[in-house]
Structure formats: C-alpha cells, structure tokens
Design a binder for these strands. Structure first.
Lengths: 351, 351
DNA sequence: ATGAATAATGTAAACGTTTACAACTTTGTG
DNA sequence: CACAAAGTTGTAAACGTTTACATTATTCAT
C-alpha cells in the first residue's frame, strides 16, 4: 500500500469553512467555540476521517507521549510480564511504549539509551544490564530503575527485597531438614544475583550450617549455565540434595539436567528454592519454594512515579521502593495441586 | 530531572558560524561541504553534545522510522521471541518498535491499531487476535501479518505450515503405536488452532483411526484451559494415552494437571505431541514430539517484506510465505538428553 | 581580462500542529 | 445610543528539521 496522504487540519478547516485555530480548539476542547461551529468541524472531521498528526503535535508541544523501555532481553517472561503491566497501565493514558533490548550488553545499552533519548521519550523505564550504569547519570528525562539497582545513581528505584526473600526460602529448605544446601547463582555484576547470595548466606550463617565452596557455583543467569552448574555439582559423590537457585532461567537449566541425567533416587530427594514464580512454574518439579515478586505492584509504582515526575508535580529526591515478595510453598505437589498452587495469570489467552 | 532544553541545529550553526543548512548537510552527508567547515561543525556538535531532534525530522520527512508491533499478548514467550528477533533486525536500521498489546480482544486491537496509525508508524507487524480483521482492510501503511492468517485481506502473510506439521507429529504418535489419540485444542476463531486441528484429522483419517468425540476438546489457548480439559479427559475410564496439544500454553496446563493428579501408571504412559518448542520445552515431561517453528526465519522474512515495501521497491501483489517447521523428537529423554535436544537460545542471559 | 563552469554556502519555505494575540461580533448597561 | 464586556473567530509565529533555489566565491579556458 502506498502511503496515501492523510488529511490535515487545513483540509478540515477548509471543509468546515473555519480557520485551523478553530479546528484545533474543537479537537482539544480548549477555549470556547460556538456549538454550531463545533458541529461543522466535527462533521468535517468525520467526513474526512481526520486524525491529528501526532508527530506535529509532539514537535509543537515538546512532548511525545512515549516511554522508552530498556530491557536486557525481550524474550524473558519475567521482563515481559513487567512490560505487559506497563503497557496495560500506560496505554490508557495515551503513552506508547518504545521497547528496546540491550541484549545483555552494556555497550548496546548505551546505544539504545541514546537512541531513545534522540526520540525524545518523555520517560524511561530501565532494567539495567549490570551495575555499570554511568551512562544513565546524564539522562535528563524522568527515569525509573526497575528490578535492579545501580548504586550512586540519583534515581527512583523499584526493587524486591531480594536478600530477605532469599533468606526466607533458604530457611524454609533448612526447616525441611536439609542441612547441606548448594547455591546456583548468576553474574556477580547483577544486583539481584548479589543480593540473593547475601540472603542465602544470611540463612546459612544464622543456622550455623557449613557452606561448602564446591557447591557455591556462579556463572551466568542462563539456562545453559544452570544446566552445566548442576552437572558439575552432581559430579561430586556428596552432592547436596537441596539448592538455592538464583532465578528461573538457572532453575530451568538445572531441572533439565536432573530430569534427563540424575538417578531416580537423586531426583526423588532433590529440592530447590528459587526466585520467580512465572506461568511455567508448576513444571519445575524439584521446586519446593518459590519467591513470587509482586510484578503488578512494581509496575504500578513505576508508572506512578514516572507519570508524576513527567507532570512535574514530584520534585522530591529520588525514592527507593522495596517490595516484599511472597513465598510460595510448592512441595508435595503430587496429588495436591489445587488451583491454589497455580501461578498468577494462569488463564490468559495465548497463541 | 526537569526536561532541560536540548541544543538545536540553530545553536550548532551559531557556534560554528555557519547556516543551519550547512549543519544539516554535514550531519546528513548530503551535498558537498568544505572539509574545513565540516570540522567546525563537527566541533560545535561535539561541544554542545548535539543530537538531532527525531521528531522534527519525522515531521519534515513524513517518516518516523518506527514500526508498530501489535500482539494479542505481551507476556507470551512465543510472541516475544518474535519481537526479540524483530528488534534485533530492525533496530540496526534505525527503527524503533512501538509494542502494543491487543489483550486478546478485537476491540482493543482496533483501538491499538488506530493508536499506532495516529503515530504515523512506517509499517506494521501484526499477530491478529482472531479471524475477524476487517479493521485492517483500510490500513494504508505497509503491513505484515505474522503467525495467523486472516482470509480476504490483501496483505503479506507469513505463517508456518500448521496443518502439515500437525499431521506429521500426529503420525509420529501413531507410529509409536498409539492408536487412540485425543486432541486438546484452542479457539475456533484462531487460524493456527483451526489449521492444526485439520492436520490432526488428516492423520487420523489417513491411518483409519477412530476419532472419539469425547476426547476432542476445544476451549481457549490458555494454561487454565489445558488444565481443565485434561481433567475432563482423565475423568473417563478409557482416556487415551496420547494427545495432540495445540500449543505451549495448553500443553503446560495439561502437564500441570497430570503431574499433580494422575496416577503413576497414567503418567508413565502418557505422550503428547504439540506445537512450539520454546526455552522451557525440556520441562514438558510428557512431550514426545514438538513442532519447532522457524521463528528467526519468519521474523527475517517479515522484516524483509516490510522494509522493501516501506522503501517502495516492492509493488507486487501481497505474498504468502509458508515456512516448514521442524519436528523435534523428545521421547526417551531420560538419560539421553544431550545438548542436542535442548531448545534454541538455551544459553541466553536472563534476569 | 572576461565569462562560464564549478564549488560552497546561505535564505527561506515547508512539514502539521498549538496558541498568544488581534480582530470582530454580539450582548448588556447606563 | 455609546461604550464596555464577553463571546467567538482568525492571523501568524513557533516548534526543529530538510531542501529547492539563490547567491557568492573560486577556478579555469579563452
């Protein structure tokens, strides 16, 4: 389809026999117009199927009504649940979401950041790639950092209490009677990974358990990594029968390895506690405790802060909001899985 | 942060002691400029940290370099894998993605469509909510329909061969020796669901098996639906030990039910074949055969068609591209899961 | 030296809006 | 009836670019 010329406000004005100023006033309901004139204008608008040109308006008003969303990865359910919420909250307000992936690279993050700024986004929601975030310092539009905190950046931050929740689920494993617990972690430059490790250690120390270095394993936050780390752990005779797993992806990888390679006896006894409780959580058969982050609330808060800053009626210092996740007990699921243990959003429509 | 005034081309011109036309020429490498002048301009650009205003440029050029992406759901891995690809391909070309969710509602789809058109997107990638798509008829920008076809819309269409693949995996189940196979389906208004059902029936008929209506179950394409359909099927004494499952979501739901509620003997024998082979596929323990759609190729083709139409050098009639998915055999995974059976993108970084 | 051709730069209009201000019309008041 | 106030509409500038065209400066052949 060739790009047909759209009617402009001039066309409407001509057809209605008024000036463009009047048309604009009618459309924006600003100032007063004679009801009769309004009728004429509306008629012309309808006849021409006129839609105001958002670009021109943006230029004039210096406001694009678009929000940049910068994520490490697009195809990660944890992130996209957040994007979905953001979209749900912002689109009724007339905002469009410009979604950019930093592809887990700081360089790409920089590029995408300036790409978004060039496009004059009114605000930014950022899930940072790592703790290196100096490029965010000079951003001069309202911006909210979600899920991952970067130190020393004077910005609104919205996170979960990673440390406390990691502590809690580790304790839950201990309370189950597990005394040797391994750790399958992620990138030491990612805020969430670090905090969760701290929480894990908190629990181990508080309960005076030993922390066997052979089973404290760090790599990336990928499935691949979970797979190989689990393989490595299992290569030891005395592999623990419980692990704290830093997130979903590592969890899937580890579970995949176990399903395919571990002896029945090992599988029977294995217990995981981990972060994230997304739609495929019921499939994670070794998961006894999951940390469910309040994604809706977090997105809500992000939108609230962002819109208030954009409207300029929030001049306060940047705030840090820490949400308390809930812990989901999933053990003994055989024969007991009521809908109560199903993840949120279980009945959504899909492809 | 208050929105500080950005420097404009005028500021650059003044600082460099030239006219704005010259600055523009330098920036766009159009026409010829004296190397000396260019130096001055570049210097001024650097000193002011000038970035051209994309909105103004869009207005002048009547081209926004943004692509609208309209999906039924944002938080569905199948869709977001596609979005990720699109982003990866389009962002190097300078395009921004405006991601909109139609939230599985035709009305919302209409709203979001005109929202995107108002913003003068240069092109559209659409995964339609259902077969009712009259509102797409009058779209006057290049547009590609992905994954789901709508009849009678003169548009470029990119789909998988749903019918053939469904036929194939159903045959694979039959070849395994399964003679009674159930069907867990989705919405009859969704193209993919319908086509897959046809393929399933093709196989059943060709092999002269019987199609027991009690086990041909349709509902939504949700996990919830998979859960309840499986429950219903299992309530019969003579429930089949094999099912074709229309997609991932239904598959997860059904698996969840079985894991929690089915007798060991039932679980041991159960076999699924289904569409989609996404990152959590290894967790679907009853899955014997999965249809892996070539998402990268599909996204590639979409971008190719779209960009060529946008650049105007593709005036042909709309084309329909049908890709052949590959079939992944996943049975007997115990003890044999090499990385060969792991889904694509297994080693991606995540939260 | 002259004029034409070429190179380099500037001027100004245009893209489609919004809005301050001016201008005109109507109404109301004394 | 004059004049002010209120109501309604129009004019024109501005937002930050791009680009056709005009202008000026330079080079070169005659």
């Amino acid at each position: 389809m060739p790009k047909r010329e759209n009617p402009t406000i001039k066309d409407v004005a001509k057809l209605a026999g008024v000036s463009i100023a009047t048309v604009s006033r009618v459309l924006n309901k600003l100032g007063v117009v004679n009801p009769e004139t309004e009728q004429k204008v509306q008629g012309a608008v309808a006849k021409l199927n006129y839609q105001p040109n958002a670009v021109a308006r943006s230029l004039k008003l210096n406001r694009t009504r678009s929000i940049g969303v910068l994520l490490p990865e697009v195809s990660n359910t944890f992130f996209t649940e957040i994007v979905e919420q953001l979209e749900h909250l912002l689109s009724p307000k007339g905002y469009a979401l410009l979604v950019c992936s930093s592809e887990n690279s700081v360089d790409e993050e920089k590029r995408k950041l300036s790409f978004l700024l060039e496009r004059n986004v009114d605000g930014l929601v950022v899930i940072a790639v790592s703790d290196e975030g100096s490029h965010f310092a000079e951003v001069d539009v309202p911006m909210v950092m979600l899920d991952r905190k970067i130190e020393g950046l004077g910005r609104d931050v919205i996170i979960s209490d990673n440390r406390a929740s990691a502590y809690e689920v580790t304790c839950a494993l201990i309370d189950e009677g597990r005394s040797r617990i391994g750790f399958l972690g992620g990138d030491p430059h990612v805020h969430t990974s670090v905090e969760r490790y701290r929480g894990f250690v908190d629990a181990i120390e508080e309960r005076a358990l030993v922390l066997d270095e052979r089973f404290v394993l760090h790599e990336g936050m990928t499935m691949k990594s979970g797979y190989t780390l689990m393989e490595k752990a299992l290569s030891f005779e005395d592999c623990p029968d419980a692990f704290f797993v830093v997130n979903d992806m590592v969890h899937i990888g580890a579970t995949t390895f176990l399903m395919a390679n571990a002896a029945r006896e090992v599988r029977r006894r294995m217990a995981f506690a981990s972060f994230d409780y997304l739609h495929y959580a019921p499939l994670l058969q070794f998961c006894h405790y999951a940390v469910a982050q309040p994604l809706e609330k977090m997105a809500n808060r992000a939108v609230q802060l962002l819109t208030r800053r954009m409207e300029g009626d929030l001049k306060d210092f940047p705030s840090t909001t820490v949400f308390q996740p809930s812990i989901v007990a999933m053990k003994d699921r055989e024969g007991s899985a009521s809908n109560g243990t199903l993840p949120p959003r279980f009945n959504k429509e899909f492809s």
